[in-house]
Design a binder for these strands. Structure first.
Lengths: 138, 138
DNA sequence: AAGCAAATGAGAAGAGTTCTCATTCTTATT
DNA sequence: AATAAGAATGAGAACTCTTCTCATTTGCTT
């Protein structure tokens, strides 16, 4: 069990936190809601409260271990921080999520912020569409 | 009272709808939550239910009269459709919202969607930062 | 003016998330 | 290794935003 990551983030190495971190790291699915994490842990026999999952994910976010996204549909989606910033393109049919990085867009955003007199802190870009798979099914 | 806009949208010209449309058109503030609209109407002596405001705004959205945004903070924000598509840059301190259009970014997005095999239906780009005013107040 | 379908308002209900607080766990200290 | 002090947890209540339900009202057609 690797508690060093938590310690480094200034968080006590409690069992729920370790379980959640471990789960996030090992899951093949990258983008998960708090509910997803909660259910998955329950199913693998762990005892966690939903409130704890929310709390811990929020702490992970503050610690920079995790990024929170606001995809359409209301609920927050979390993703392990794996270095490079990226944006998302998602399928409105099947919910599939792809990632991309585009330096030109990044540059443009900085430029716009500067022009408008803003000191940019963050940005979010989501492209919505129908993925290749779903286009075939019509 | 101008009911033609509603008729054109295929909506019956009811009083609540007219009031809401009128309010949206005359408000200097461009981006408003359902709650904002509701409160404003109450204050100006109109009798509307919150449920109706939500319903009507959703209908206006479907009719293309209004655009719905999902800024951070959970609630939906509505804006009168005034022709050209644009993106938003918002101040995380005071909540101010500015708009911008960037053809380069638009192009890039289309290109990315195509590369990833998606047929793009929509996109949303929000830049967050601290606006000029708020930077001074530090 | 009358009738019918559509729209409304009030409150209940639902989804997602946060809060409360008694109990349990971590960790620093013996 | 035992202990004490404080932090974290779990369960459910509570909260926010939004949608639904349904009895009543309104708009539109005849």
């Amino acid at each position: 069990m690797d508690s060093s990551e938590l310690k480094r983030a200034g968080l006590k190495a409690t069992l729920p936190r370790l379980k959640i971190l471990e789960f996030l790291e090992n899951s093949k699915v990258r983008h998960m809601s708090a509910e997803d994490v909660y259910k998955a842990l329950l199913e693998s026999g762990e005892e966690v409260g939903l409130a704890t999952v929310y709390r811990v994910l929020t702490q992970f976010e503050a610690a920079g271990l995790v990024v929170r996204h606001h995809f359409e549909g209301g609920q927050s989606v979390f993703e392990m921080e794996h270095g490079e910033h990226h944006d998302h393109i998602l399928c409105v049919r099947c919910g599939k999520v792809d990632e991309f990085v585009d330096e030109t867009i990044e540059e443009r955003q900085k430029k716009i912020a500067k022009e408008k007199g803003y000191s940019m802190t963050d940005h979010s870009l989501y492209i919505y569409g129908v993925c290749g798979e779903c286009q075939k099914e019509e």
